[in-house]
Design a protein around this nucleic acid. Structure first.
Lengths: 355, 355
DNA sequence: CTGAAAGCGCTTACAG
DNA sequence: CTGAAAGCGCTTACAG
């Protein structure tokens, strides 16, 4: 008997009711044909003694552990807890537990982490992959949450559309000179966001992209981004691909005596915890992680059903996720005033764009 | 057979070697007496075919799932990922998987979450409890990570001592007028940190405690904390019980045109991800989460061993954690200059404390 | 030192 | 509609 469970088993119910444990199993699962009357008595008894099935016994018999693995890329990414929560929630709705495995920022560990999960016989794995890693066939259902432009992506936020929302918002405030801030040019997520932002801005808008990694490679980790100089050059908005970079920009600007949002606007992505804690609050774009998690778990559940030890009759039900792996993002506008809006009339695009 | 495992089992090794599966089991576990020569051949064969034991089979037999549960209080707390990572790491070192369960900020869900884990037959549970909840006897080993002053606490950072470090640091910079910022007066962790800070300051230092919840109850969520007025009243340092509040203070001060660290110092707790991303970086105090996690997992492992289905001979080995549940914190001083230091000589304590 | 047997708790064909 | 039997993969006394 498992150590931590009150010792109630199928066969105890069976003997106490004078029936076979097969019948108890059938009644409780609703599978086999059991008379309604007997089934009721069995369910009543089960409730009475507080029976909970042993997952270990079931797993051994069915080959299904009812556990999913969750592989996360880098703990430093503050989006992690939200994803973990969303997955845990969706999984437990669907009757799965969630085993976590962290790559700790190293690609090699991602493989290790996946292997640990495989050894524990998880039924499927949700992977938020590390940059540039392609998840090989694991012989086990996998759902990848990355970006729509990543091959092998199962479901993710529509980062491109999110970028467009930011662009429209800033344009609406009258901004005509915008700096986009990214950290890593090889990230599909970031490229989607930046691409979306660019695509949402008219050609009259002056856009410059700042890659933090490039600056840091020359000036060292955590160095100033030189935003003051950009303000001097007439830029009035800083749109970062993450709230962390937005925060960095905000404090660097404030520290230089530049007022946000009066002098310049700052936007981020993902609505992380500090976006409302700072003054002024950050305008940002939120992912619908609940939906993303549901779709990911659903995709796994479908794959698991398909891989069934005994084939399920082909009911023609398609995998729910196909083509739906692009979940819209939502703008959270918190900085809604901008000096530019008032003065934008005097800045004719022609002034700037004329050769 | 489990669906996702390459079909290698004990008995396959056994038949391929012409021995019994009991012997294979013994050789692989090193328990029963098996001749060195045979054991070698068995291990070789196991390695050759890439044998990994079925945890389900083992669990059913031994009553041990080799899985720990991790119950976290509120996803909004950005310390979460670090704790989760530390626990996952320590657990996997000790041969355990980690099943997560999130309380989503509600006390009722904490109980639900624990029950879900119990139903999955975890061998033990690490709980970071919600404020004011006492974990009842679950009939299953539990390690509580909270604060040394919480009854039932198993292991945690020495928040009081951490507070003292902050106090010494600020005093060393010459600060004589310090505001402590807390969010919740019922939190043991926060009270420890604040108590520690107070205890580390001489009576000549003017100290005022700001409870954010009190301010927000009157002025609404996310309202300004009125720090500018405090600066006008002569306070030169703001020591928050968390980096989030430190960030809030920093941006509110900067927004008001007050310079950090030239005019005032700001400190936080926990060294969260943004503490180096902001300008200026935050001085903060770091928890040794790796050690805390190791001790928590070790405590569980010991309890699990004691609860063994068949009693282990009393070897007299005490639970390793007893009395050691208070892990020192480390100051990370990032704001090391302060105008006060230079001008502190003109501020005699007697000026302020005279009646 | 090695093996045969039992059994952990469950589910699934298969009989009746 | 119900039950007897087998078996998932493992470990543990117990014989030999």
């Amino acid at each position: 008997m498992a150590a931590n469970r009150p010792g109630s088993t199928l066969s105890q119910i069976a003997t106490s009711l004078g029936v076979s444990s097969a019948t108890v199993s059938n009644a409780l699962s609703g599978k086999g044909r059991v008379s309604a009357e007997l089934a009721d008595r069995i369910r009543a008894k089960a409730a009475e003694i507080g029976y909970t099935p042993s997952l270990a016994g079931r797993a051994l018999r069915t080959g299904r552990t009812q556990v999913l693995g969750l592989v996360l890329p880098d703990i430093a990414n503050p989006l992690f807890p939200q994803i973990a929560q969303a997955i845990e929630n969706a999984a437990s709705e669907a009757g799965y537990g969630v085993l976590i495995a962290d790559s700790r920022g190293e690609t090699a560990r991602q493989t290790e982490a996946i292997n640990r999960l495989l050894e524990r016989d998880v039924d499927g794995i949700v992977v938020v992959p590390r940059l540039g890693t392609r998840i090989a066939d694991l012989g086990c259902p996998v759902a990848v949450i990355d970006s729509p432009s990543t091959p092998g992506n199962t479901v993710s936020a529509d980062h491109w559309q999110g970028g467009q929302l930011v662009a429209e918002h800033l344009a609406g405030l009258g901004h005509r000179d915008i700096v986009l801030i990214g950290t890593n040019a090889r990230s599909n997520v970031q490229n989607d966001r930046i691409g979306g932002m660019k695509s949402g801005l008219s050609r009259q808008v002056r856009v410059e992209v700042l890659w933090v990694e490039t600056i840091e490679r020359q000036a060292g980790q955590g160095c100033p981004l030189g935003l003051e100089a950009l303000v001097d050059r007439g830029f009035t908005a800083f749109a970062a691909v993450s709230d962390l970079q937005a925060l960095r920009a905000l404090t660097e600007l404030q520290r230089a005596g530049i007022r946000v949002p009066e002098d310049v606007s700052v936007t981020g992505f993902d609505d992380l915890v500090w976006s409302t804690a700072v003054t002024p609050s950050l305008t940002t774009v939120r992912q619908d992680l609940a939906t993303i998690a549901e779709l990911a778990v659903q995709a796994l559940a479908d794959m698991i059903a398909e891989t069934a030890p005994q084939q399920i009759p082909p009911t023609g039900r398609a995998v729910a996720v196909a083509g739906a792996g692009r979940v819209p993002m939502t703008l959270i506008a918190r900085q809604t005033s901008a000096a530019v809006a008032a003065s934008s009339s005097r800045r004719q695009p022609s002034e700037r764009n004329a050769p």
